[in-house]
Amino acid sequence: MKREPLLAALGAFALIACAWAVPWLKFILTIALAKGIAVLGILLLLRAGQVSFGHSMFLALGAYTVAFMAPTEPEVLLLLPAAALVATGFGLVIGLFLVRYRDIFFGMLNLAFAMVLYSLLEKLYAITKGTDGIRVAGLTFAGTQPERPVQEWVMFGIALGLAILFGLLVSVYLASPMGRALAGIKTRETRLEFMGVPARRVLLFAYVLSALMGGVGGALVAMTTRHVTPQIAYWTASGELVFIAILGGAGSALGPFLGATAFELVRVYAAAAVAEAWQMILGAVLLVVILFAPGGVWGLLSRRWRA
């Protein structure tokens, strides 16, 4: 896989070119990069054979952290770590409980926590403004408040930079003993423990890391759309993240970004072509990918490579 960095560089270049050539796509691509970062977390858990069907809660935590803090502290460079911190802390707390469970219980408990968070965001109307959501306005970047086109470029740049950073981090992590142990949880967990590797701690680390990336992804989404609603935590949003992971392919840290870009583009073009049935088109794309290209976009690319 020596060509992976090359491919990543080419991909980044293509994204920049695309964002430059078609201004309105810059927004879509920024969102795709943000979701890609969150999906990296799904990828980690998939390595351990676990599917989180509630991962959108970390996006929501990151996004709402930004929404709540922005009026008093509009600095993006502070908001991002704050959002990451909140999501990480939350991930650690529920992770301690969740890593005791596997398979459907793991997935459903994640779903349960996400749904509780979703309900609270809707119910606590006095604090969260319910489904109307909260507007994120007046962000500053290192103390400056650039014009809209510049600001869009800055957000795109931050998202791309963080995507590369987290992509590298995940690649390194997956190659490390801790990362390799994840696969052990998937296949033969008991064997792992015989060898003296504490499976729960391995999974917890991955879970907390995935929560962190979820929070960062959510914060980026909030800063880009500049309006946060509870829908970001709904279970279908979690389903989309898993969808993206498989669409892109779980074989590489590039997968989530390939998947997220493909997902957003398909959705935008499907919605433009048939506004009433975009969901059906997305569903059909997903079916085709699973049935005929279970390795996702990455799988297609790397297979052709070897050939």
């Binding site: 998939l46 997935g107 898993v242 009433e276 059906m280 997305l282 699973i290």
Partner: peptide, 18 residues
């Protein structure tokens, strides 16, 4: 894999909604 099975039904769900 479990996740693929789950997603097949998720895709079906999206299609049937429409």
């Amino acid at each position: 894999e479990d996740v693929l099975q789950l997603l097949v039904t998720f895709a079906l769900f999206m299609i049937l909604e429409d």
